[in-house]
Design a protein around this nucleic acid. Sequence first.
RNA 1: GGCCCCAUCGACUAGUGGUUAGGUCAUCACCCUUUCAAGGUGGUAGCACGGGUUCGAAUCCCGUUGGGGUCACCA
Length: 502
Amino acid sequence: MVGQRVRTRFAPSPTGYLHVGGLRTALYNYLFAKKMKGDFIIRIEDTDQSRKVEGAQRDLIKTLEWAGIVADESPERGGNFGPYIQSERLQIYDKYCKQLLDDNHAYYCFATHEELEENRQLQIKQGLQPKYNRKWLPEEMGGTIPASIIRKKLDEGEPYVIRMKVPDYVSVWFEDIIRGPVEFDSSTIDDQVLMKSDGFPTYHFASVIDDHLMEFTHIIRGEEWLSSMPKHLLLYEFFGWEPPKVAHLPLLLNPDRSKLSKRQGDVAVEDYIRKGYSSDAIVNFVAMLGWNEGEGSEQEVYSMEQLVNKFSLERVGKAGAVFNVEKLNWLEKQYIKNRPTEELVEVIKPVLLAELEQKKSLMPLEIITSETYLEKVIELMRERVGFEHEFVTFSSYFYFEPEAYDDEAVKKRWMVDTNDLLLEFVDILLTIEDFSAANIEAHLKEFVIPKGLKAAVLIHPLRILVSGVSFGPSLYHMLEVLGKETVVRRILKGIEKISFQA
RNA sequence: GGCCCCAUCGACUAGUGGUUAGGUCAUCACCCUUUCAAGGUGGUAGCACGGGUUCGAAUCCCGUUGGGGUCACCA
């Protein structure tokens, strides 16, 4: 194994959306493989027919690719170790199962669900660990069932499963890359079903065989698999295969420290995409949940490339991490602040166009959809939005007339003579040739100072009139970007609707 | 409950025997400011507990407590 090219895998079951925990698992597999100049592979574990969801495989891969996690081999890309879908590898599992049967490492079990359940209840009542009672263990393997009976059942076409025979009184030991040595006693391991009665393998069996056949060097997966590791190890031993190195990742947690779940917020990557998070932020955030550079590094923002360069399994923590959206939000803002303007234009243009389908704008379309205009909006709003789409949704006044005016702000900012002042000031605005921020500011001050008033008496009402709200970018720059015509129109329209309230 | 894993500010974490226990998010205050942000400065806040080992423990060992995972013909 020394000098071997690193191969890792992400092996989701196509039962629905991609979980953020799954995203992190995939990411760590990807980062490690790429860091080691190796390959990252996607394998689909669809051995449970009943849970299979149509389209899930496509969505899973699409979402991973959205995040920048592109597999070197996958069901869609192919590769030299296919098929990459387990339901297409059934003959392979059959073959290896036969071998286990021949070697007396596995046996047929004809127990019914009812029987099993009854046995389980009995054991629980007796205070024992629920475990298969080995009723169908054949004589030659130390059990009580004669080969003839098994033969007969088989001939009669009786449904069966195939179980692995866990050796008694052995201790299974392995070294986890993240956790160090871990030991289990075989008495705590159940005779795991390998082949289900529908002829499909269970996860445990299929994944061991595929992990070996596909020549993975490192298995990186969630901690929930830690306790089934000994079963897998036993299987490797039965086959005489060298097991890959394993790393069990700490779990992602809810704010109350239970396993991250629906109910307490969004868990699907798609949910976050829908809300407007960028892959940069999600990947960065999820990468830091359990991994850090260490050695006094204070970097918080990492590109995928940097992550690849710096990632190491040794620096993955052992404790679960709470998925905290606040920090994700902060990261998203960091990316928006630093994203090239052209990129932002590309993203928000379609959002604006879609919005324009719904709503009429009184502003010239060729202007507000132009790149130069959007660039100006971005310049003003860049540090004030939490998501890219907010360049449109949170700043709709750059494109649409205000539909309402913030009541509280109006109450606070309107004096008896505000409307008169505004009306007077409109005339001045009309005279401004060069409608620039600096010019507007100069004219406003020139207008207000001789009257012994502060600029604020106009600044706030103007903002409210023009945008409808009491917050936003620099007023003068906002007016400049909107243009004289729009500004004047909105002021006149606004003062018709707003008046001083005592 | 058995087995397994884990334990530093509210959150993410740095720290591997000697540090005023550091950083980031959040939070609070102040500065900047026409507003809101952004930014700047500063503050509050943490080694779960109890025993050891040691001249000296956040760091090593044991125990307790707490949390989590897992005990399927699901992955």
